[in-house]
């Protein structure tokens, strides 16, 4: 795994342990508890991180192998 991706995943895992919002009862947008909103943002950030991974760190060695046929 490239170091940049390893660093991103580690940062995500550290950010996931959000001790700083543990007892924060603020409602984001007036209805969403802060802890839930923050963790939903982690989900979005994970998607961005994996988007970066498939763009910059994709193991191209396997790309030449393709299956027979296809449904998408």
């Amino acid at each position: 795994m490239p170091r940049s991706l390893l660093a991103i995943v580690l940062v995500l895992l550290v950010l996931h342990q959000d001790n700083w919002f543990w007892t924060d009862d603020t409602l984001v947008f007036g209805f969403m508890p802060m802890g839930l909103f923050y963790q939903a943002c982690i989900s979005v950030a994970a998607s961005f991180a994996w988007f970066y991974a498939v763009k910059k760190c994709w193991p191209s060695a396997h790309d030449s192998e393709a299956g027979a046929g296809g449904e998408s």
Partner: peptide
């Protein structure tokens, strides 16, 4: 998967 790219 049809190809490795299908995983993206």
């Amino acid at each position: 998967a049809k190809s490795a790219k299908s995983f993206k």
